[in-house]
Design a protein around this nucleic acid. Structure first.
Length: 309
DNA sequence: CTAATCTAGTCTCGATCCCA
DNA sequence: TGGGATCGAGACTAGATTAG
């Protein structure tokens, strides 16, 4: 009989309040948190005690753990509460991730999320960020994992602005990063850009906005990571239906129909034949960095509704 | 278990830019 | 033109992580 609560589920669901909370965890700590987030089921009405063995944890996190390592990580994790600002901007909530962890004689680990997290993890009010654990796990930097979640929140919108100071607060970066922007850029911004593009379903880039000489805002651009032509076509058919993809050299706008076929969105409404559609898809994929539909930060209504749910 | 490697954080240096 | 702030690169340290 298996007692493990670390099932094959790979999705984590958390409130935007948690994603945007202020906290800094090491990679090991954040991996423990994310692992246990996958144990929470959508239909759960309350937290239960989650139980698993070291083997389960190793299998799930794809790395080795020993009891001392685990104990040290948990102790450190318990000493790092979440700082959740109230949406009004005035108040705040300080809450621990877990209320207890237990490692018994039989090697079974039992843990319990803090009750106060219930509105942020189970009966979530407002925006939810659903992320695939398998994308988060391979990223080596904890900042990359945080940045991924922060950007994932806005993936349907296509861009996100950060005030540099606020972002540094959210990530709780050390003073050296605050006083040295270049260090912050190198270790946090560029590192997470690289990691996210390499490991996750998002493809991101950023530009700096300056006030005088000082960089005060970062604008991230977010779109789905289409490494293969196949994924690219699936993505366009899903999210960019009847949106101008690009204009041909002679000025005709091209769109993708609900049926997934490319057509000229002019008076003719002519659908491209199979051969030229194939060539056009390949061209679109090769030139995906330049496409109009990605440049204009498309906000489609359906995505916005989902986001506001 | 130890050694090698990686990561985070701090510090220094000269170059560059803004503004008075 | 010069002071002050910022930039970018690199050296260094402590600590964490991984490989053998």
């Amino acid at each position: 009989m298996s007692i493990t609560d670390l099932t094959k589920r790979n999705f984590t669901r958390q409130s935007h309040m948690i994603v945007n909370a202020r906290y800094a965890l090491t990679r090991g700590e954040i991996d423990i948190v994310l692992t246990l987030l996958t144990a929470i089921k959508h239909e759960d009405e309350d937290f239960k005690d989650y139980q698993f063995t070291m083997k389960d944890l190793e299998k799930k996190t794809n790395r080795t753990w020993n009891s001392k390592q685990l104990k040290d990580t948990i102790k450190s994790l318990m000493s790092k509460p979440l700082d959740i600002p109230k949406e009004s901007g005035k108040g705040w909530t300080i809450v621990s991730w877990f209320s207890s962890f237990d490692y018994d004689d039989n090697g079974i680990i039992t843990c319990r999320f803090d009750k106060a997290l219930k509105p942020y993890l189970i009966q979530i009010q407002g925006t939810r960020i659903i992320s695939d654990f398998r994308h988060l796990l391979p990223m080596q930097s904890s900042y990359s994992k945080r940045m991924y979640l922060l950007l994932k929140e806005y993936d349907k919108i296509g861009s996100r602005k950060f005030n540099v100071k606020e972002l540094q607060e959210i990530l709780k970066v050390p003073n050296s990063h605050k006083t040295r922007y270049n260090k912050f850029k190198q270790d946090v911004l560029q590192r997470s850009e690289k990691d996210i593009n390499k490991f996750t379903d998002l493809e991101v880039s950023f530009v700096e906005k300056k006030q005088g000489r000082k960089v005060h805002e970062i604008h991230f651009f977010i779109r789905k990571n289409n490494n293969s032509l196949k994924d690219f076509i699936v993505n366009i058919r899903a999210d960019y239906v009847n949106i101008v993809l690009f204009h041909t050299n002679d000025g005709k706008p091209i769109k993708c129909s609900e049926k997934g076929l490319l057509y000229y969105a002019d008076a003719s409404n002519l659908t491209l034949n199979k051969q030229s559609a194939q060539k056009t898809w390949e061209w679109l994929h090769e030139n995906r960095n330049k496409l109009e539909c990605f440049k204009n930060n498309i906000i489609d209504k359906k995505a916005l509704q989902e986001l506001q749910q």
